[in-house]
Design a protein around this nucleic acid. Structure first.
Lengths: 100, 100
DNA sequence: AGTGTATCTAACCATTCGGTTAGCTAACCA
DNA sequence: TGGTTAGCTAACCGAATGGTTAGATACACT
């Protein structure tokens, strides 16, 4: 269930660790070890988060000797922004409540 | 875990049924029965989705005789849009990959 | 008072999620 | 060749998710 890309993207973003990883990657690519450092969490746990992000198309992973550098792939975030924009008129205007 | 509001909002949005409910509510408030109709799903299942949306602050529910009309509360979507906007430069520009 | 409708709670079930530890593979270096 | 490091998979665990059915509650209409 929930095989649509927007659901997968939102699910990937619904975790503060994963959002922190994306935020770190805005400063440029990083290796897994580097991404693990800020968290009180085992390597495999971060590895799982990275897989979730990769499946959502939010990161891409390269291969460089014994490292697997990750870099941000922000395209799905454009979909998110566009989806949310559809609701703009419901938050930035005093839209009428005709039912009241 | 994941008590931050952004995580709760993203988690609520990570389900197509719930996003469809929000989309329906852009046309105005609706009763639970009305929201249930489009889905091949039991009443309690929709009721649970509504509770998730309510806890995320995405809908509000009134009380009107035996009905509990729901209406859209889009404020959390503004947070989502703003969060995503921080990544705009990573999707709409050919940003440099200094590492390559 | 009794019937019907709208909605919720409770209990249950299978699956997914976020974490762990243990152990593997691949690459580098002495 | 052996040792160290980076990163992975596998197996497991407890909690959360998304659904179900059964039953409770609240209100409206005769």
């Amino acid at each position: 269930m929930a095989v649509d890309s927007l659901s997968i993207t939102f699910a990937a973003l619904a975790d503060p660790t994963r959002r922190a990883i994306l935020a770190r990657l805005t400063a440029g690519p990083a290796r897994v070890k580097e991404l693990t450092a800020p968290f009180a969490m085992s390597g495999p746990a971060v590895s799982k988060h990275l897989r979730v992000l990769e499946r959502a198309g939010l990161i891409a992973r390269g291969r460089e000797a014994q490292w697997r550098p990750c870099r941000l792939e922000a395209a799905p975030l454009k979909e998110v922004a566009e989806w949310a924009e559809n609701y703009r008129r419901f938050w930035d205007a005093n839209f009428e409540r005709l039912d009241e």
